[in-house]
Design a binder for these strands. Structure first.
Ligand SMILES: [Mn+2]
Ligand SMILES: [Mn+2]
Ligand SMILES: [Zn+2]
Ligand SMILES: [Zn+2]
Lengths: 143, 143
DNA sequence: AATACTATTGCAAGTAGTTACAATAGTATT
DNA sequence: AATACTATTGTAACTACTTGCAATAGTATT
């Protein structure tokens, strides 16, 4: 299943006329084998184990590239660092400003809202993986 | 008008038990005198003109601090750098992934949507200044 | 299989942002 | 006005991320 999606990504890159380098393949593999968010540094460490000699700038460039190509999601979830993930599950994030609790919200739960939003603005919103900050139910009580 | 809001911010800090240092005052002044978003570096440059000797780490720490205290807004609008602004106008951002066009959307236009969103999730969403990415009407046409 | 084309990489150096810790300076108290 | 308390700052060093450029290596063509 994961292998399948990985293959699809790589085929897609070739289809769009980009080169399929070992560096790109290994970064994609790290993303696809991970569950949840990874920082560039975590990705770098894991990718370098699989492909010794791989350098930091290449990993950063590859992550930017995959994001531009919409084969990876990126998000700011309050840690200061950007985190990456495959686009497997359409979702957004809800982070509590006080206790830091982080929840994933399936996109389809907000589908209707996003449609209205698109309609109001005229934009075709395609940035899944938006992060919203606020107070979780627990932290609302204690003021 | 701007001066007034600035005063209020400073009083608020004292009220919350924080010290009112020249460093903090000058960073607040820069934010309040600016129209629109500023990067930390722009803020640093302007603040250092007003207060020679002010250092970079202090500016970064002050911006984090003001953001935590909710006296400054921060946003990622796609430039890679975090940008700051006063909380004068409640709004969000709509950025076109293709041409980069950036629009401000008044929050009250989305008030109803946000209410529904809060209701669905149980969170009290208070992070104004959310950035949504998508395709602007112009870029949707040309595929 | 060899060649040509050029996208992509690694290297080295640069910029942006953070942190530990000792010195400084706001504020409350006298 | 002087003193004490400690939050906040500057310094120096560090980590995170980016960029210019020459070398490398995918891909298409022969
Ligand atoms: Mn996610
Ligand atoms: Mn703004
Ligand atoms: Zn909470
Ligand atoms: Zn556009």
């Amino acid at each position: 299943m994961t292998a399948n999606l990985l293959e699809t990504c790589m085929k897609e890159l070739r289809l769009r006329g980009f080169r399929l380098t070992p560096q790109r393949m290994v970064v994609l593999r790290v993303l696809h084998e991970a569950h949840g968010h990874l920082t560039p540094i975590e990705i770098c460490e894991r990718a370098q184990e699989m492909l010794p000699g791989l350098t930091e700038p290449t990993v950063y460039r590859t992550l930017n590239f995959l994001h531009e190509q919409r084969l990876a999601l990126a998000a700011h979830v309050g840690s200061g660092q950007l985190v990456y993930e495959t686009g497997e599950r359409d979702h957004h994030h809800l982070v509590c400003r006080k206790c830091g609790a982080t929840h994933e919200i399936p996109h389809d739960l907000l589908e209707a809202l996003f449609s209205q939003f698109q309609h109001k603005t005229g934009y075709q919103i395609d940035g899944m993986h938006v992060t919203f900050f606020g107070l979780c139910p627990g932290c609302q009580d204690h003021q």
